[in-house]
Every structure is written in C-alpha cells, then in structure tokens.
Amino acid sequence: MNLALWIGAALLAVVALAGGAIKTFTPQAKLAASPGGAWTGDVSAAFVKALGVLEILAAVGLIVPAVVGVAPVLVPVTALCWVLLMIGAMVTHGRRGELRFAILNLIYLALAAFIAWGRFGPWPFTG
C-alpha cells in the first residue's frame, strides 16, 4: 500500500505541477479560450496566477517533505488541501455546466483523499 500511496502522490504532483505551470505562465486570454479554462475570464489574472503558484507548491508538498524527511506530515496536509481545492473546482465547473471537468476534478479529489487517508492513517511516514 505504501507503493500505491507514493504512486498516487507522484501522479497528483504531476497534475498539480502541470496545472500550476499553465495557470502561472499562460496569458489569461489564452486560458479563457481553452477548454475548461473559460472560468479564468471571470476572475482576475492575479487570482489565476495565485492559484497556479499554489498548485506548484502543492506539487512540491506532495513529494519533497517525505523524500527529504523534513516534516513529512505536510504530505497528507497538502493532499487534504488539494481535496478542498478540488471541491471549489467542481463547484466552479458544475455551475458552468462543464460536467466532464467536474468529473475529472472528482477523480483528483478521490486520489488526494486516498493519499490523505493513507498517510494520516494506516501508512504514515515514520522516521
């Protein structure tokens, strides 16, 4: 199960890093014109970039604390924060009628919940 939690954290970190980089470095007008990105046209560019930076930090928080052995409790804390972020994303996409993106957010939420459950519960990092 430890391996499954590591794989899940790595997959979620890749998703967070990619999404964060896109939100941070892509112009807002281009994001708003892309599938699933129309919501960015309804908020400020600073908000989109802030979300992007938070997603990049989440990618770091899902992997680095456990790898370096410093405050590994940050891994499940980060996963729990990702659950909250995905709830917001699901609400946003749901309100816009973008069901396929809300379902994708639900998958990411489930993966983050699995990581939080596993690392807070039966398979915490011990050191």
Rank of each mutant, 00 (worst) to 15 (best):
residue 10 A to H: 11
residue 126 T to P: 00
residue 17 L to H: 12
residue 110 A to S: 07
residue 95 R to M: 03
residue 89 A to K: 03
residue 89 A to P: 00
residue 109 L to Q: 06
residue 21 A to P: 03
residue 58 A to E: 13
residue 27 P to W: 01
residue 118 G to F: 00
residue 9 A to M: 12
residue 91 V to Y: 11
residue 30 K to I: 09
residue 46 A to N: 04
residue 72 P to A: 14
residue 5 L to Q: 11
residue 100 R to A: 05
residue 127 G to T: 03
residue 21 A to F: 04
residue 6 W to V: 09
residue 68 V to H: 12
residue 11 L to G: 15
residue 102 A to Q: 00
residue 82 W to V: 13
residue 37 G to A: 11
residue 37 G to H: 11
residue 63 I to M: 11
residue 33 A to L: 02
residue 44 S to I: 02
residue 9 A to K: 03
residue 30 K to H: 06
residue 33 A to F: 05
residue 118 G to T: 03
residue 112 A to P: 00
residue 89 A to D: 01
residue 55 E to K: 13
residue 71 A to K: 10
residue 120 F to V: 08
residue 32 A to Q: 10
residue 5 L to V: 13
residue 74 L to D: 11
residue 56 I to Q: 05
residue 114 F to I: 04
residue 20 G to L: 03
residue 118 G to N: 07
residue 82 W to I: 14
residue 54 L to A: 14
residue 36 G to A: 08
residue 72 P to R: 12
residue 70 V to P: 10
residue 80 L to F: 15
residue 97 G to Q: 07
residue 12 L to V: 04
residue 42 D to L: 01
residue 32 A to W: 04
residue 61 G to N: 06
residue 105 N to V: 02
residue 93 H to W: 01
residue 51 L to R: 15
residue 97 G to N: 06
residue 60 V to K: 14
residue 121 G to H: 05
residue 69 G to P: 07
residue 107 I to V: 11
residue 46 A to D: 03
residue 123 W to T: 05
residue 7 I to F: 12
residue 122 P to Q: 03
residue 22 I to W: 01
residue 67 V to Q: 07
residue 50 A to N: 06
residue 35 P to F: 04
residue 34 S to P: 04
residue 9 A to T: 07
residue 120 F to W: 09
residue 29 A to H: 15
residue 49 K to P: 01
residue 115 I to A: 01
residue 26 T to S: 14
residue 10 A to Q: 09
residue 22 I to H: 01
residue 64 V to I: 13
residue 5 L to H: 13
residue 121 G to C: 02
residue 50 A to I: 11
residue 15 V to P: 12
residue 45 A to I: 01
residue 79 A to R: 00
residue 9 A to P: 01
residue 6 W to Q: 15
residue 74 L to C: 10
residue 83 V to D: 00
residue 23 K to V: 01
residue 70 V to C: 14
residue 20 G to Q: 05
residue 1 M to E: 13
residue 109 L to M: 10
residue 85 L to K: 08
residue 79 A to C: 13
residue 1 M to G: 15
residue 37 G to K: 12
residue 64 V to G: 09
residue 12 L to G: 08
residue 124 P to L: 01
residue 22 I to T: 05
residue 7 I to H: 15
residue 53 V to R: 13
residue 30 K to R: 14
residue 25 F to S: 11
residue 121 G to K: 10
residue 83 V to F: 09
residue 24 T to G: 08
residue 119 R to W: 00
residue 22 I to D: 04
residue 28 Q to R: 15
residue 104 L to C: 06
residue 96 R to T: 02
residue 53 V to A: 07
residue 96 R to S: 02
residue 95 R to N: 08
